[in-house]
């Protein structure tokens, strides 16, 4: 048997030194193995290729707000189980698991804060909580953030990351689309600015309500954004979708978002927009 036909011995992980699983992380963008601490310091963006990893909601709050300025609101709001919903698991069990996993009560963090000195109301969705799905509590918290902006005459910023409406709350979850849009109608009429930030992924009922209604819509690079999910579309049209369909860049090209913004420039971009739109702040920098 020729030497080049001999079977190679596959590499095994035997004898590998055990490292804690979270010291390194492989980048999905370029395959580079990244030292996790460096990744976190770089706002969960790959320093080599700029790939945006999903960032925990708390980190996004920190990213957008002036140090020490964030006051959380509505943290004690919890989902009811209005339909007594059970699929393979009862809904309350899913909620409990999500709470344990994320350490928060629901799929959105809301509050008031300052950004480069400008007061604003903020909501950041947490994809780790049942896929960032929107049920009654998410809708109520976004609505309250909107009302907070109305009361204090400030802008509103919402960072979206969601698979859409939460099926386990049935028609109530659908109605959250109407509810959040109604509050945005009030902001719109009062001339208060609303900036929507779309992160990976934002689909379904969240895209089809508040995420698309910004006076400015900003999207993170590479984020999947759409109404229907890519698999549903492929099943419908019986065709494979082209590379990059429903990416942030695709939406920018098709006029659905104002700009794709690198996370590392997000705070400065939002602050600039609020200075342009929020009454009383145009002269400051």
């Amino acid at each position: 048997m020729a030497w080049f036909k001999t079977q190679k011995k596959p590499l095994t992980s035997e004898g590998r030194r055990d490292l804690p699983a979270d010291v390194f992380k492989k980048c999905d963008g370029c395959g580079e193995i990244l030292y996790r601490e460096r990744l976190v310091r770089n706002l969960h963006v790959c320093p080599d290729c700029g790939n945006h990893f999903r960032m925990p909601a708390a980190c996004y709050v920190e990213l957008l707000t002036d140090p020490g300025s964030f006051e959380e609101t509505g943290a004690d709001l919890v989902s009811d189980d209005p339909l007594n919903f059970a699929d393979l698991k009862p809904y309350p069990t899913r909620l409990r698991t999500a709470k344990e996993k994320t350490g928060r009560n629901e799929a959105v963090v809301t509050g008031r804060a300052r950004i480069e000195g400008i007061p604003f109301a903020l909501a950041v969705m947490d994809f780790a909580f049942i896929g960032g799905s929107m049920g009654s509590v998410v809708g109520e918290k976004i609505a309250r953030a909107g009302r907070d902006a109305l009361e204090r005459a400030t802008g509103l910023v919402v960072v979206s990351a969601s698979g859409g409406a939460r099926m386990m709350e049935g028609i109530f979850s659908l109605m959250q689309m109407a509810k959040t849009s109604a509050v945005l109608a009030r902001l719109h009429e009062r001339g208060l600015p609303y900036v929507s930030i779309l992160t990976h992924p934002t689909t379904g009922g969240v895209t089809a309500s508040y995420a698309m209604l910004g006076d400015a819509n900003l999207a993170e690079p590479g984020a999947l954004i759409g109404f229907a999910g890519p698999r549903v579309i492929e099943e419908t049209i019986k065709q494979e979708l082209p590379q990059g369909f429903q990416s942030a860049e695709f939406l920018e090209e098709h006029g659905m978002v104002d700009r794709v913004v690198d996370r590392r420039q997000m705070k400065a971009s939002v602050a600039t927009l609020l200075r342009h739109m929020q009454a009383g702040w145009e002269g400051r920098d």
Binding site: T73, D76, G135, S136, E140, A178
Partner: peptide, 19 residues
């Protein structure tokens, strides 16, 4: 507005917080 803003079912646990 009042009709749609009232839609949903949630609980507010006792204690601090609340917008």
């Amino acid at each position: 507005w009042a009709k749609y803003e009232a839609m949903g079912a949630w609980q507010e646990t006792a204690g601090a917080g609340g917008a």
